[in-house]
Computed example of a mutant assay.
Amino acid sequence: MKVQNKNIVVTGAGGGMGRQLVLALLNKGAGVAAIDINKEALDETASLAGKNGTNLSCYVLDITNNLAVIETVDVILKQFKTIDGLINNAGIIQAFVGVNELDYDKIDRVFNVNFWGTLYLTKAFLPHLLTRPEAHIVNVSSMGGFMSFPTQTIYGASKAAVKILTEGLYAELKDSAVRVTVIHPGAIATNITVNSGLAGPAVDAGNSKNEGMALSPVIAADLIIKAMEKNKFRATIGKDAWVLDKLYRLSPKIATNFIGKMMKKSLARQGS
């Protein structure tokens, strides 16, 4: 589905990939309903939109609150009249600890944002999307959604749930006008650590160049929109996600052991 002259909803629009998705969609001539829990972050996104801001509306929403989601979707539909696309981008990570050390409230929070938030928005918009001549749902999973990353096990499980949800939706909606794409980003230079309530350095998410080994969210957003416009079933974003996807397909055990070693080294460096 080409995004020009379409109205598209983006969650997690206050920063990182979400912000860059909003700005890129506006540049391509789309109308955007931007959703985020952080009003100040949304205001900054709106400010960065500049002259394209006339095609942008912002909505402060806690996507883990299903009643609030339903109410906000009603407001969006009344304002835009038609919505053609939904990009479920909002997500958080967990603290870098094992399952044994992770409290249940932290586990619930990760699943509430990553999985339930995605499901709530999808369920709320789907009846309307099914009435459109063409429509598209894009759900952002993770490379942690197709293979395990120790000390991010709950995060990975929530993103694996997004993967299966998306692939199931694809099969259920295959004979409709609604296309469905699952996205598996690798390391992206965003402030997801800080936005997840964890300690970490701030990142210049607007930098169009790579941040070390991490891919710029500007480039990531462009690749996600291209996957959407090409109606791809799935897309890996970043060389790391592409390589690990191939390695996991070759041998899940070897891939799991490899990532385990890399995670141990990374955590050791952070602790030193």
Rank of each mutant, 00 (worst) to 15 (best):
N195V: 00
N114A: 09
I237V: 12
G186H: 00
A227D: 08
L126W: 05
Y120F: 11
R179L: 00
E172N: 15
N210S: 09
N195C: 00
V138N: 02
T131L: 11
G197D: 07
Q152L: 11
A177N: 14
T190L: 04
G186W: 09
A199T: 15
A205Y: 13
I183C: 00
V194M: 00
T122C: 10
F149A: 02
E211R: 06
N195F: 00
V138S: 01
M228H: 10
A135Y: 01
F115Y: 14
S196F: 01
A214H: 09
N231S: 14
V110M: 10
A171I: 12
L129Y: 03
P201N: 11
A161I: 08
L173R: 07
I154K: 07
T236Y: 13
A205D: 14
I188P: 10
S148I: 12
N112I: 01
A189Q: 08
R234N: 12
K123Q: 14
T118D: 11
S141C: 13
A235V: 13
A161P: 14
N195G: 07
S196V: 03
G200H: 06
P217Q: 08
S141W: 01
Y155C: 07
S216N: 08
A199H: 07
V218P: 04
A227R: 10
I219T: 15
N210C: 14
D204Y: 02
E172P: 15
I183K: 06
R179M: 05
P133A: 08
I219K: 10
F146H: 12
A187P: 10
G238P: 11
I237K: 07
R179K: 09
P185A: 08
P133F: 08
I154D: 02
A227V: 15
A205C: 08
L121T: 03
R132C: 06
M213E: 14
V218F: 12
L173H: 08
G156P: 07
E167C: 04
G168A: 06
V218L: 11
L169T: 15
S158E: 06
V138W: 09
F125E: 00
W116I: 03
V203I: 14
A227H: 12
K226Q: 15
A199C: 07
P127H: 04
P185Y: 03
V203E: 06
T190Y: 03
T236C: 11
A187E: 13
I164D: 12
P201C: 03
T151Y: 13
